[in-house]
């Protein structure tokens, strides 16, 4: 391969655009928000960067830490469910025939072609009391009731007098369903990438040497796909931690996540310094999680 030093001017020319973009539209705004987090409100619209730590002190109030905690739990459960659901999907794609593989991958990416808001509203149409999930259940209920009365058991009303729709929406389960639905592709794609590189002869060797299917999966497939599991987990956990649209639209009175609190600081509460402090706490938390992972990885003998 040619050394980049030989074409130094070309290197700088190509590198200039992305660098300017990164500085202007990423680092600069981030720095401004970081400075806001050390500011005090002066009247309705003005604030002054005074270097105060009061915003962080307020953010460390147990009330807000509790909301941080709840968000971590939501994001953790979302990651776990995504892994359990996503692993078989990724395996299925890897073991599909070469003709089907691109089609299946396309199906995984397909939801990205529709706006997140539209997809969330579609989910509302599925889960609500008069939604498609309940319509389906009601159909089964009617069929079973008809069948029972044909069998002469109608008078016992074994399945209740009338169909009671399930309350599927506006609770924490709905939020988890929504979060998993939105983030699943971020789990499946890195898993697929890792599993595709897997040497299948190792699985065959394990089976030949007497391991059960399950054992081969746990002791061979899972450890070898660990890099994919970890990148998938990070790609799901971090955006799930900062979700606000999903809890807003699918959640009930108990589903407040930290990003909902942050959003309010920039809108109805009109308290940008406090919102900035909460945002940066969330970011520090994310960095801490990544650092912790690095430490564990090193201790575990390197990944």
């Amino acid at each position: 391969m040619e050394d980049w030093r030989r074409g130094r001017s070309a290197f700088w020319l190509i590198g200039l655009g992305p660098t300017v973009w990164l500085v202007l539209f990423f680092l600069l705004p981030l720095t401004i928000v970081w400075l806001y987090s050390f500011a005090e409100l002066r009247g309705v619209v003005d604030m002054e960067v005074t270097g105060t730590l009061s915003n962080y002190a307020r953010a460390l109030d147990p009330l807000y830490l509790e909301v941080f905690g709840k968000s971590l739990v939501f994001a953790g459960i979302t990651t776990g469910v995504s892994l359990v659901v996503g692993f078989p999907v990724a395996l299925a794609i890897v073991f599909a025939t070469p003709r089907w593989r691109p089609v299946l991958l396309l199906l995984v990416i397909l939801p990205f072609w529709t706006n997140l808001l539209i997809r969330t509203y579609a989910l509302i149409a599925v889960l609500r009391v008069r939604g498609f999930a309940n319509f389906t259940l009601e159909w089964f209920w009617e069929q079973s009731t008809t069948l029972l009365s044909l069998l002469g058991l109608g008078s016992y009303q074994l399945l209740g007098e009338r169909f009671e729709p399930l309350e599927l929406l506006y609770n924490n389960t709905a939020v988890i369903i929504g979060l998993v639905y939105v983030h699943l592709p971020f789990m499946v794609l890195p898993l697929y990438a890792a599993l595709e590189k897997l040497d299948r002869s190792l699985i065959e060797a394990a089976l030949d040497l007497g391991a059960s299917q399950w054992r081969a999966f746990l002791t061979v497939v899972v450890p070898l796909s660990m890099p994919g599991i970890i990148s998938g987990a990070i790609l799901v956990f971090i955006p799930a931690l900062g979700s606000f649209l999903t809890p807003d639209l699918l959640g009930g009175t108990d589903s407040q996540m930290i990003a909902n609190v942050i959003e309010r600081q920039f809108k109805s509460a009109n308290d940008w310094p406090f919102g900035a402090a909460l945002s940066f706490l969330l970011m520090y938390l994310t960095f801490a999680a990544l650092a912790l992972r690095a430490v564990f990885a090193r201790n575990a003998g390197g990944l």
């Binding site: 009330l63 600081q265 509460a269």
Partner: peptide
């Protein structure tokens, strides 16, 4: 004013949490 708005938002967070 600001103090009222901040109090209202804090109480709202408390209700949600």
């Amino acid at each position: 004013g600001t103090d009222y708005t901040q109090l209202v938002d804090r109480l709202w967070t408390k209700i949600g949490a």
